[in-house]
C-alpha cells in the first residue's frame, strides 16, 4: 500500500484525475498495489510534501512544480508569464523541460511519473483594465517571486495575502486584483468579490506526481509497468480535463455574472513585453540548462 498526500481539495480536477489514476493502478495490479489518496493537505502541508517523499515517509505525492523554483529555476519555467500561453505551447515547453526535471528529481532519489497543467492564468479585477496604465497603483495579489516581479513591472503594487484570505481581502479592499486560473476562480467563487476576469492564458503552471525511488525499486516488474501505464494514461487524461475545465470555467464565470474578456490588444502587447523581460531574467537565473531549454522550446 502506498500513501499519497496531495495539496488540493477533492473537488479540484487534478485530485479527481489522481483518484482515477489510483483506481487504474489498483485494477491493473490486481490489488497488489493500493494507493491511499489523502487530498487537501490532510497528511502533509504543501511545502512539506517533497521532503516527505524524498525521505520515504510516503511513497508518492503530488505538488506544484514551480514551488521548487528557488531550488532550481528549471522547475519554474512554466511560471514565466507569456512564454507558453496555450495548450500546444505548454505541451512543447513540457517536452523541452521534462528530461531536465526527471534528472533533477533522480539526483534526489525521486522519480517523475507525470505532470498536468493548470488552465491558463488570468487577471481578476474589481474595475476594468484596458491597458497597462490601468494597473498602475492597483493592489495586486501575488503569491511567489515571479508574480511579484510581474506586478512590479506592470506598475502595480505587489500585495501578499494568503489564499484563504482572498475573498475577505477583496471585499475590504486589501487587494484590488489577483492572478490565477479560471478553474480556481470558479472554485473560490470569484464573482463574490471581483467583477472582471481577463482570460489571458498568461502561463500554465503544472502539478507533478512523483515517487520515492526506493519505493519504486521495491515494486515487482509487473507492478512498475502497471504504474507507468496508468501514469501515461493519467497524463493524457489530465491534459484533456484541464482543457475542458479551461473552456467551461470561462463560460461558467460569465454565467455567474462576471465580465469575461480576453484583454485588449494594447493590454496584451504591453504584457508580452513584460513577459519577454521576465523570460530573459529567467534564462539568466537558469544557466546553461535554461538556455538549452528555451532553445529547444523555441525551435
Amino acid at each position: 500500500t502506498w500513501e499519497m498526500p496531495t495539496p488540493y481539495p477533492e473537488a479540484e480536477f487534478h485530485t479527481k484525475n489522481i483518484r482515477l489514476f489510483a483506481q487504474d493502478v489498483e485494477t491493473a495490479t490486481g490489488g497488489s498495489l493500493k494507493i491511499n489518496v489523502h487530498s487537501g493537505q490532510s497528511l502533509f502541508k504543501h511545502p512539506e510534501i517533497k521532503r516527505a517523499v524524498q525521505t520515504g515517509q510516503v511513497q508518492i505525492a503530488e505538488m506544484l512544480m514551480a514551488n521548487l523554483l528557488n531550488e532550481d529555476a528549471i522547475f519554474g519555467v512554466d511560471a514565466v508569464p507569456f512564454l507558453a500561453s496555450n495548450y500546444d505551447e505548454a505541451a512543447k515547453l513540457w517536452k523541452a523541460q521534462r528530461g531536465m526535471v526527471e534528472a533533477r528529481l533522480a539526483k534526489q532519489g525521486m522519480r517523475l511519473l507525470y505532470a498536468v497543467p493548470w488552465p491558463g492564468q488570468g487577471f481578476y479585477t474589481k474595475s476594468p483594465i484596458a491597458s497597462l496604465a490601468d494597473l498602475k497603483g492597483v493592489k495586486f495579489r501575488t503569491y511567489n517571486s515571479a508574480t511579484a516581479s510581474m506586478a512590479e513591472l506592470m506598475g502595480a503594487v505587489p500585495t501578499i495575502v494568503e489564499a484563504v484570505e482572498i475573498p475577505q481581502a477583496f471585499s475590504t479592499g486589501v487587494v484590488d486584483a489577483m492572478v490565477t486560473s479560471g478553474a480556481t476562480g470558479l472554485r473560490t467563487k470569484a464573482w463574490d468579490f471581483a467583477s472582471y476576469f481577463y482570460d489571458l492564458n498568461a502561463w500554465m503552471p503544472k502539478n507533478m506526481v512523483f515517487v520515492n525511488e526506493r519505493a519504486w525499486r521495491s515494486l515487482s516488474d509487473a507492478e512498475r509497468e502497471a504504474v507507468q501505464k496508468a501514469a501515461a494514461a493519467a497524463e493524457a487524461r489530465g491534459w484533456t480535463m484541464s482543457k475542458e475545465v479551461s473552456d467551461s470555467s470561462s463560460k461558467e464565470l460569465a454565467a455567474k455574472g462576471m465580465k469575461v474578456e480576453s484583454g485588449s490588444a494594447e493590454l496584451v502587447s504591453g504584457l508580452k513585453d513584460i513577459g519577454a523581460k521576465m523570460a530573459a531574467d529567467w534564462e539568466k537565473s537558469a544557466g546553461a540548462d535554461g538556455a538549452a531549454l528555451l532553445k529547444a522550446y523555441r525551435n
Binding site: 511545502p47 521532503r51 531550488e71 534526489q108 511567489n144 511579484a148
Partner: peptide
C-alpha cells in the same frame, strides 16, 4: 535528523526570499 537532511539536501524555503 530532519535538520540534518535540510543541510545535506541544501533545501531552500519556497517563498519570495529563499
Amino acid at each position: 535528523e530532519m535538520v540534518y537532511y535540510s543541510v545535506t539536501f541544501g533545501d531552500l524555503t519556497q517563498g519570495l526570499v529563499p
